[in-house]
Design a protein around this nucleic acid. Sequence first.
DNA 1: TATCAATACGAACGATCGTTCTTAGACTAT
DNA 2: ATAGTCTAAGAACGATCGTTCGTATTGATA
Lengths: 206, 206
Amino acid sequence: MRGDASRRSVLRRATDLVSIEGLDGLSIGRLAAESGHSKSSIAGLFQNKEGLQLATVAAGRAIFMEVVVDPARRHDRGLPRLVALMRHLIDYSRDRVFAGGCFFAAVSADYDSKPGPVREAVRAAMHDWYGYVRAQVSAAVDAGELELDDDGIELLAFSLPALYEQANARSLLWGTDEPYLLAQRGMHDLLVRAGADESMLTMLAA
Amino acid sequence: MRGDASRRSVLRRATDLVSIEGLDGLSIGRLAAESGHSKSSIAGLFQNKEGLQLATVAAGRAIFMEVVVDPARRHDRGLPRLVALMRHLIDYSRDRVFAGGCFFAAVSADYDSKPGPVREAVRAAMHDWYGYVRAQVSAAVDAGELELDDDGIELLAFSLPALYEQANARSLLWGTDEPYLLAQRGMHDLLVRAGADESMLTMLAA
DNA sequence: TATCAATACGAACGATCGTTCTTAGACTAT
DNA sequence: ATAGTCTAAGAACGATCGTTCGTATTGATA
């Protein structure tokens, strides 16, 4: 179909805009002006604004998978994949794959207090993402690469994204790369303390 | 002055609204409807929207100081004050002092990519806050309550707010208190690992 | 080739935005 | 008491929002 190409070109611009303006700062008029299409075309392609928002979340999610998750999948399950995941995650934010930094940091901060289908979509994406991180931690424990009880698994799966998101936020606010180094060191320390062999953490080394 | 009372009543509503809608989701019209004043009155009291935004940031900051920082100041400098700070911080978010959770998480997330005086005000507030946390960590080291080198101080001052903000975000997204327990445990562990005496961490104990 | 759904655009809608002007009332200060 | 500043509200402004309607054009299907 011809519309799919249009949808894709609109959504690529929409994800950048959303990462800067937030999910409801996204306006059809502005998106039309910046993408070369007309307002009514965009409205028609996605039915209405909510449809556009849902499609944008899906598009952001797809890019995130492609840039962060898929490359990590090429590493062995468990600790290697977990380390690669964190590394690609940091690079993804630092390289500004989206103009306004981490896509999901922008949308989740924006819709965490507003009920509706959009919030549910954001929630589902975050749920899957955090679940994936947790699964890798758990797999690393099963493989004997980390030594943690259930509470320790939960805490590590909570702390790693915490360090990442703090780095993303501080880097955006100050325009510096230094927070990423701090997050990297923090992740490294947490993993060492969880029993990881230093030789498996080279991707997180200084 | 009579206007100051009006300003205060408007701002108390504005800070709640901002914590939900974000700093530019705040609209004078809606604020007028919910606070009982007229649109033109509000515009006049704060000159224009940017003035309202700046005043709202200042108001949110004042409430944050009153609820989080001042109570911690009643504890001794160093580790006791640091622990109290983290405890009050968690309570402040969990108790929803602002309807939409942590005020600064909301404003920094949506103005971190938009240059201008408002961004500068947000940046200044965050700078002071992070600086205060760092000063307490440093003081704890000076008092011999923690054993850290300069890099370790920086990392701990980075990690504690990271855990907090992750808890705030996840709690808002899922409506659960559980993330606060994880952040509390994480903070406890970080402090123990930095050489803190367990007996000084009772405010962060389970 | 003829048919028909999907696309694209321009125009216009009611609503809301931020801002300004004007007028009326309240308070301070000389 | 009088003058003058601050406060409050109503009306209206141009701009932009999301949405809808009508119409031309495209491209795949029968």
